[in-house]
Amino acid sequence: MGTSKEDRAIKGSRAKTIHLSHDYTYPAGWVWGVVIDLDHLKTITKGLVSFRNLPSGQIYQGQHIQVDVSLFSWMPYQPYEMTVIALDHEKMSFQSDEVGAGVKSWRHSLRVSPHKDGCRISEEIEIDAGMATPIFAAWARFLYRRRHKPRLQILASLEQGKGNHQTTTNFQAH
């Protein structure tokens, strides 16, 4: 596979880094609240990834999550782990280190940046899956792009609720 503008080889390893961004016409706080809610993660990955033992609520710094994942809900479940290594509500950003299901390392960084028309989610995903890295990189690009439409649907339902977004943006200390 060739290297695209979204990918950059990491020197000294087989890892690839994927860069993605999506714009939203919703307030940054609403989008941030959706991004850090594990219940919304289930919704935005429905049909692509199924989870067993995924906790509810908002992610928090230092959180270690051990789940089983199944692609397309018909492939065998495999163990997967995620550790939230950094989370900053003020900057609306987080970083996680993930491993499992054939992946040696999956480092995900996300930030929500306000702009005059709403906000932008910018993501960087660094993946090392050995010789299977190109396949996992293609999967990541597909998976993260597919999250945009369900997020828009969640945000539209929050907007219709006029005020229900406050529960989504009520950040909890852990």
Rank of each mutant, 00 (worst) to 15 (best):
N53K: 05
Q153E: 14
I10F: 05
A101C: 05
S113C: 04
R14K: 06
M75A: 06
E159W: 03
I65T: 06
T17R: 11
V103K: 02
I154W: 08
E159N: 05
G29E: 15
D88S: 15
K162V: 10
H174W: 11
T83K: 07
R111D: 07
S70A: 10
R107Y: 11
K16W: 04
L155C: 02
H40T: 11
F136Y: 15
K91D: 13
M1R: 15
R146E: 13
L41K: 00
H174I: 05
I85E: 11
T3V: 15
K104M: 02
R52T: 01
P55N: 00
Q166H: 07
K42F: 01
E81M: 02
G100S: 03
R120C: 14
L20H: 09
E123R: 12
N170V: 00
L110A: 11
A129D: 04
Y26L: 05
A173C: 08
V103H: 02
M75Q: 09
A156H: 09
A137R: 13
A138G: 10
P27I: 03
A132Q: 15
K11M: 02
K162N: 06
V84F: 09
G118R: 07
S93G: 13
K116R: 12
G12I: 05
T168I: 01
H22F: 09
F72H: 03
Y80V: 01
A156P: 00
R14M: 01
I36H: 03
S73Y: 12
Y80E: 03
T25A: 09
H174G: 07
L48K: 08
T169K: 13
G130W: 03
S157I: 06
A129G: 11
R14F: 00
M82W: 01
Q63G: 13
N164V: 09
L48Q: 08
K116I: 10
M92L: 07
Q61V: 14
L143V: 12
F136W: 14
M1D: 15
Q58T: 12
T169S: 15
L143N: 10
Q78D: 02
F51A: 00
M92E: 11
I65A: 08
S105F: 04
I36W: 01
K104T: 06
S109N: 09
Y77W: 09
K5F: 06
